Computed example of a mutant assay.
Amino acid sequence: MLRLTKLGTNVVGRRLYSVAPVTPVNQITIADLFAKHVSKQPITMITAYDYITGTWAQAAECDMVLVGDSLAMCALGYNSTTEISLQEFKYHVAAVCRAPGTAFVVADMPFGSFESSLEKGIETAVSLMQVSSKVGAVKLEVGSSSNPNGLRDYSLRLAEELCSRGIPVVGHIGLTPQRVHALSGYKAQGGADARRAEAIHRTAQELERVGCFSVVLECVPHKVSETITRNLNIPTIGIGAGKNTSGQVLVQSDLLGMLPGKLPRLAKQYGHLYEDSVRCIRTYMDEVTTGKFPENEKHGFRIKETVWLEYLAKVGKGNGDL
């Protein structure tokens, strides 16, 4: 909180609290997201991978920006989200956070950065929050609240540990790409087995109980997602989970058509950046080849006549034209 007092002709800023920023930033907060949830206003979320895509998301005024580990495949060309290292991922989190804007930023916890122990998971979450003051929460992929062996999923315990330490957590259930091998592939979850649908429901409730402020539901049948949403007091963010969740998230490269290839069923393409970009680059190449670009008068810089003549004298050339 900053109070301005006028002394003569000078305006002096005086802090009322030692931790107050000199320049207040109107970032969207968890309280703001809950206010939208309570008033039944859909929450918008989009992924971002770097400063440019972060800037686009912020300029569009999305409520939430997710720096997702999907960037491993969409931006870096890896075959799987499991291949990116924590250090490489943090580099992209920092770049996204440099984009100006008020969106609430969430950072994924990449595969391999938390599974070895609770201590390692806590350390990873803290390090992600320290990348930038804009990082407001971490997202954690979570398995079923119970399994055939009767063991409680490790990531649920980690979510509880993080929440108990004041680290905001978004749980991610349903199709969890980091567990794609355990799930036997990229497929919808809970549509063919009532026990699996119930497990997803129970896990969502458990995530709320341990303190998560939101849950992402990926590739969950829309009837199941709607039921889960009705039974939770925290917002649900859907991707391939129907229209009756509290909000939606899409991968920016899918939304904008940044890459060729088949679009996932859960996505919708609103632009054609890949085709437009290739066309623009080809037009540029054609203009270079035919001499249309660059044009000296439009794209070049002039030199004073006296400087030009002096230059020619120094390099031993004869007079020339501008």
Rank of each mutant, 00 (worst) to 15 (best):
210 V>T: 10
210 V>Y: 10
210 V>W: 00
211 G>F: 10
217 L>D: 01
218 E>V: 06
219 C>R: 05
221 P>T: 10
222 H>L: 07
224 V>H: 07
224 V>K: 03
225 S>K: 05
225 S>R: 03
225 S>W: 02
226 E>W: 12
227 T>G: 03
228 I>C: 11
228 I>D: 02
229 T>Y: 12
229 T>L: 05
230 R>D: 09
231 N>M: 05
233 N>R: 15
234 I>Y: 04
234 I>Q: 03
234 I>F: 07
235 P>K: 11
235 P>A: 06
236 T>C: 07
237 I>F: 01
237 I>G: 11
239 I>W: 00
240 G>Y: 12
241 A>T: 03
242 G>L: 03
242 G>D: 01
245 T>W: 01
246 S>D: 05
246 S>T: 08
255 L>I: 03
256 L>G: 00
256 L>P: 02
259 L>V: 05
259 L>D: 08
259 L>Y: 07
262 K>D: 11
263 L>C: 04
263 L>Q: 08
263 L>F: 00
264 P>R: 08
266 L>N: 10
272 H>A: 15
274 Y>R: 00
276 D>T: 14
277 S>T: 15
277 S>F: 15
279 R>I: 00
280 C>M: 13
282 R>F: 08
283 T>F: 07
286 D>K: 14
287 E>F: 04
287 E>W: 11
288 V>S: 08
291 G>S: 04
291 G>P: 04
293 F>T: 06
295 E>A: 13
295 E>D: 13
296 N>D: 12
299 H>D: 15
299 H>R: 09
299 H>W: 03
300 G>Y: 07
301 F>A: 10
302 R>T: 12
303 I>Y: 03
304 K>R: 11
306 T>L: 07
308 W>K: 14
310 E>W: 06
311 Y>W: 14
312 L>T: 04
313 A>E: 15
316 G>S: 10
316 G>L: 02
